[in-house]
């Protein structure tokens, strides 16, 4: 296990190091000014110096992302369950849901500001909206594609509709739900930051715009770094959660890998 784990951790680190090195080289060779492209060293320095400021704004953005994620996943899950349970709802709502995806959610941002104000609510709504559909679609597909054999077996075992849904269809949909969750985790930060760009007084998106306007490009990059760290941490957290939801999948995986 340990010898296999080492290269797995080492490889991404080496890639990161390589990219940083290339970045620094470009800055050295072209002599591009600091207000166009600061080098990684300058960004790192700003990152450390401005850590309290960055953390304060990251906390706001992080809260928006998490709340949006929670709401979006909850709403998506509930929608998928309702769509599967009630056939008439499915016939009326599903076409609407699909067509609504043609509207670019970003275009709604100004409206959300108008309705929900400049505070966190509009950003949470933005993140919720942007992940609602992928989660709904993933859960709905997962719930619909239960192997018919499982359901037939459940019926010969005397399972009612409720037991079939809770004990067969829901667990069978967990892998699909897990991939929906992963997509949501990677998309939710976009919603929050776009919301902040349109109008806000705190958050990493606000900080980036502000730094850009003041030509503090190193601060912009530092904020970007913070955002990336936040997004990556969130993704790994959600990925770990999704794996815990479907322990039988990782077990087969380990079994195959051996």
């Amino acid at each position: 296990m340990t010898p296999a784990l080492l290269p797995r951790l080492l490889r991404p680190l080496l890639i990161l190091l390589g990219i940083t090195l290339a970045w620094q080289l470009i800055v050295w060779i072209t002599g591009v000014p600091r207000f166009i492209l600061p080098g990684p060293l300058a960004v790192g320095e700003t990152f450390l110096n401005q850590l309290p400021l960055l953390s304060r704004h990251a906390l706001v953005t992080g809260a928006e992302i998490l709340l949006g994620l929670l709401l979006g996943v909850l709403l998506g899950l509930l929608s998928a369950l309702s769509l599967v349970t009630w056939g008439s709802l499915r016939r009326w709502l599903l076409p609407l849901l699909v067509v609504s995806q043609a509207i670019p959610v970003f275009a709604l941002a100004p409206l959300l500001m108008l309705w929900l104000g400049y505070g966190m609510a509009s950003k949470v709504a933005m993140a919720t909206l942007i992940i609602y559909f992928p989660v709904t679609a993933a859960c709905f597909d997962g719930l619909r594609q239960t192997p018919t054999g499982y359901l037939q077996l459940a019926r010969t075992l005397g399972a009612g509709r409720r037991a079939q849904l809770l004990q067969i269809r829901l667990p069978a949909a967990l892998p699909a739900f897990g991939s929906g969750l992963r997509v949501a985790a990677s998309v939710a930060p976009i919603g929050a930051v776009v919301g902040e760009w349109v109008g806000s007084s705190t958050g990493l998106g606000y900080l980036m715009l502000n730094a850009n306007a003041r030509m503090q490009i190193d601060l912009l990059f530092a904020a970007l770094l913070m955002l990336a760290l936040l997004a990556v941490a969130l993704y790994f957290l959600v990925d770990a959660l999704a794996r815990r939801l479907t322990p039988w999948l990782s077990e087969t995986f380990n079994h195959d890998a051996q």
């Binding site: 499982y150 077996l153 067969i168 667990p171 967990l174 479907t246 322990p247 039988w248």
Partner: peptide, 8 residues
């Protein structure tokens, strides 16, 4: 023919 064991 398939065992239909629930994997979870």
């Amino acid at each position: 023919q398939q065992d239909l064991l629930l994997p979870w």
